[in-house]
């Protein structure tokens, strides 16, 4: 033993910190919406564009709101997990299609009328769901992203767990992994449905 061993001690402490750090997710920013009532909206339903849906219609049920878009690459990664979830679990999963056309960046919005945008968005969203499978009980269309702003969407995909009283209980940013689904979302759903 000599005085140089304190350096090793310092290094060991640093390693311990980094090892703990690996288990944490720095992107896991607490959402101010957790514990608050889900912001209300009234958006057209993808399958039946002349009808609308809002959080009020879901009152009394525990449900999930999943934000997606066909241009979102990470959504494709989480999609099979959602499809699998919808087959196994009887909890309504509502899709919120976010800026289907304007979010894509590949379109010149100045040359497109609102009517054209709407038509294209519905067409693209339907095509995507028929290609990859539709896990959603319903999908609502947020063409201009206003509802997304109310929900503080800052990265698609995002998923919200909302309880029977319409209060947001959890928010997950980024694609859902089997780990997040099994260890966080499922236990929460079981508890809320008790």
């Amino acid at each position: 033993m000599n005085r140089y061993f304190w350096i090793l001690g310092g290094f060991a402490a640093l390693v311990a910190l980094l090892a703990i750090g690996l288990g944490l997710n720095p992107r896991d920013v607490p959402s101010p919406l957790v514990g608050k009532p889900a912001p209300t909206f009234n958006l057209p339903i993808l399958a039946t564009p002349d009808k609308t849906l809002g959080p009020k219609d879901m009152q009394g049920k525990v449900w999930l709101l999943n934000v997606w878009a066909s241009w979102c690459v990470s959504c494709r990664a989480e999609h099979p997990i959602l499809v699998d979830f919808s087959k196994k679990v009887d909890v309504p999963l509502i899709g919120l299609n976010y800026k289907e056309v304007r979010g894509d960046g590949g379109f010149d919005m100045s040359k497109m009328s609102a009517e054209e945008e709407k038509k294209l968005a519905f067409q693209r969203a339907n095509a995507w769901l028929s290609q990859h499978g539709d896990p959603y009980k319903l999908t609502v269309m947020d063409l201009d992203g206003r509802v997304g702003i109310d929900y503080g969407v800052y990265g698609v995909p995002e998923t919200y767990v909302i309880d029977k009283a319409g209060v947001i209980r959890m928010k997950h940013t980024g694609p859902i992994s089997p780990d997040v689904l099994g260890n966080k979302i499922m236990p929460l759903l079981a508890e809320l449905n008790k």
Binding site: N2, L8, L22
Partner: peptide, 23 residues
Amino acid sequence: IFILIFLVAVIGSSLALFAWRAP
């Protein structure tokens, strides 16, 4: 985890060697 193990192996062993030889 792999890089962390690598870090421990490289830095840890060289610091240990240093602590042993330096005096």
